[in-house]
Design a protein around this nucleic acid. Sequence first.
DNA 1: ATATACCATTTATCATATAATTGCCCAGTC
DNA 2: GACTGGGCAATTATATGATAAATGGTATAT
Lengths: 228, 228
Amino acid sequence: MSKNLTQQLTHKLGEAIVKGDYPIGTRMPSEAVLCEQFSVSRSATREAVKMLSAKGLISSRPKQGITVNPESNWNLYDSEVLEWILKSKPSLQLLKEFTQVRFAIEPMAAKLAAENATPKQLSQIEEALYRIAEAQEGLDDQLDAHINFLNMILLASGNRFFIQLTQFVDAALRVSIRYTNQVKGISNTDVTFHVKVYNAIKDGDGASAQTLIYEVLSDAVALIESRL
Amino acid sequence: MSKNLTQQLTHKLGEAIVKGDYPIGTRMPSEAVLCEQFSVSRSATREAVKMLSAKGLISSRPKQGITVNPESNWNLYDSEVLEWILKSKPSLQLLKEFTQVRFAIEPMAAKLAAENATPKQLSQIEEALYRIAEAQEGLDDQLDAHINFLNMILLASGNRFFIQLTQFVDAALRVSIRYTNQVKGISNTDVTFHVKVYNAIKDGDGASAQTLIYEVLSDAVALIESRL
DNA sequence: ATATACCATTTATCATATAATTGCCCAGTC
DNA sequence: GACTGGGCAATTATATGATAAATGGTATAT
């Protein structure tokens, strides 16, 4: 649970907004009303409102009150916002959009990793490989192992914007599991695939690494689209 | 300028943090000190601190004070954070990273646009084409016209996560102009290129649209890397 | 009909008091 | 001597009340 009142309120309101309880464009209850509804002081309320404004969900102005911003203003790559979205309106459509982003990001990340990975990062990817192998034998969680593998590739890309998407990829994979009920098809469980990716990265063969990831995600997207 | 005190302070502190005035991992001045330094009340200070925490730049806890988070926690896709980064430490390295993200995103966005664009969105892309043509004749700003074209493609992708990156692409292109001093090479000024992209999207030829954008960005990345 | 001045509402800011959290030290105990 | 618990101190967290500023709307004057 969130520690302090402000964060608790931020989460409650954030979830409610994302869920659609306060429709876009409409005015939320005024400061005073929110205080009463949630039995907190104005300080806590105002701080929560500020945090939500910082994430682009709302904006508040004198006289006009607190209004819900259009979705285009929301910071969708903020992991809290992402969490609220996943919690309140998971859907196959959302999974599709997630996977499309992975489709764009991961092949390029693998390419960059092949070109830039440090020896240390390489060994981290190799370790991730072992985890996947162990997961096959039931010694580790398959999903966690796969996510770890992808995260290591993102880290090895050496690009801070890719690195920041680790949480995003994490969320995307955890959603996918809800719908596919197995890792297979979304992220090939066959460890030989991951070995190929690792080898390409190790050999500095960016094009191969990129293509490998691209192909497997291509299948994943096709699978999801077939269900829509 | 930012309207209210809280936002002003948020910007000042945000910029300072990104700039490195408060090194990562260190403790920032306490609430009380910040109040005095910037001559504002505790409410304003606390709200600014909350906004920066919401963006992942800092975290504050009793006794421990306000500490600067590692960069991996920053919400780099937040347009304000992006703005602060661009303002304080623009570099060719940063441009490279920006362009790599574009390299990942834009070809896929074009592909999706080809597959999903509505008639209205198609006509918006067509309009953007006219703007580029007019820009060639000096009737419109070239950079703005190019950014507009890319934004329309992102919008037509129908994927909210791509759509959200319009600001990112905007920032990336505006940085690139600082270094290349001309749009050429970063985003081909030849309008015939853009016509090809538009036609591919209009014809629903995702693969072609994707390849076209990929090729031109491939050149852009190569150009930047040659300067590093 | 238009522009200006005023008014009411809501957030913004300031100020102060009290509570809660937590790192740290110190004493006590085994 | 090392570990455990209590208590202290520093800092943020929360509550509350008062005042300022912003702004949409209204009324008024021309």
